[in-house]
Design a protein around this nucleic acid. Structure first.
Lengths: 149, 149
DNA sequence: TTGTGTGCAAAACATTTGCACACAT
DNA sequence: ATGTGTGCAAATGTTTTGCACACAA
């Protein structure tokens, strides 16, 4: 991600905070700064750990609270990879996509498929649902895990 | 669901238990018996409550443990409707289907779409994933909730 | 009888919240 | 200065687990 894109993203979030009458704090800054350097998928726990590793002291509670704001702002979204923990992904980096998850090694492969997307919209229309979001997750064994068995 | 189908389902589960060297207890019997009379979607908590309402005394711990067995046996499956609680649905009743969920009233509409299913299988093949399962969830506002706003 | 299941209460997790103090506006 | 944010620890909600007793094989 280019520097000007990062800056743009930070501005977006700052604008969101301002619009909502929320403050722009050093912790929120550290979180959004850190976000773009993270892997594409993370949960609250891995996020807290990676912040601590970089000596950015942000409490767990603040991470949870800020993750909520980032989701509201549309900068991250929750994806149903794991049911016991909330998984997030950064949406700023790419266009909308879906996931293939290997049940053995946990690898996540992202994909984009126009035909699939279009069919989903058709289905929503057919059932008179005013669609706001959707998720597709395909689970199985990736090539190398499949060969090992 | 017809009586002989219910009996068949119970036999399936009993066979599964036997194969695994597990015991067939009155609690497990009560749970599977109750399952077919439940609404199509439920979670551990609603399940415990509805058992208690029918004066079937099964502890919460046993419900959790048995739900796990039922999932292993393929009689129920976990669906990612709600992230903070595990949601299950009974698979014996219908063929494979996906979900439309109203974000406002929580209504769940099930649908089957061959075109969508086929595309998902193609995508898995394309990425060399040996597919074991998949979920599609479309969220938005149902017709009546959309009109109210 | 021998092993597995059950219920209870406690533990384990993930997440949220109340409160006193700190900081952004 | 005023209101919002933060960190801490405690509370919450869901699910899992250790243990003593009960039941199925």
């Amino acid at each position: 991600m280019k520097k000007n894109e990062i800056d743009q993203l930070k501005l977006n979030f700052q604008q969101y905070l301002k619009d909502k009458g929320l403050a722009c704090t050093s912790q929120r800054d550290a979180i959004i700064e850190h976000l773009v350097k993270e892997t594409s998928h993370f949960n609250a726990d891995t996020f807290v750990h990676s912040l601590q590793k970089k000596h950015l002291p942000v409490s767990r509670a603040t991470v949870y609270r800020t993750l909520q704001h980032l989701e509201d702002a549309g900068i991250i979204r929750e994806v149903a990879i794991n049911t016991s923990q909330a998984y997030y992904e950064f949406t700023g980096r790419t266009t909308h996509h879906e996931h293939l998850v290997c049940e053995n090694c946990g690898t996540i492969i992202e994909f984009v498929d126009d035909q699939l997307e279009e069919r989903i919209e058709q289905i929503a229309r057919l059932h008179h649902l005013s669609i706001t979001r959707h998720t597709v997750q395909i689970s199985g064994y990736c090539r190398s895990c499949h060969e090992k068995q």
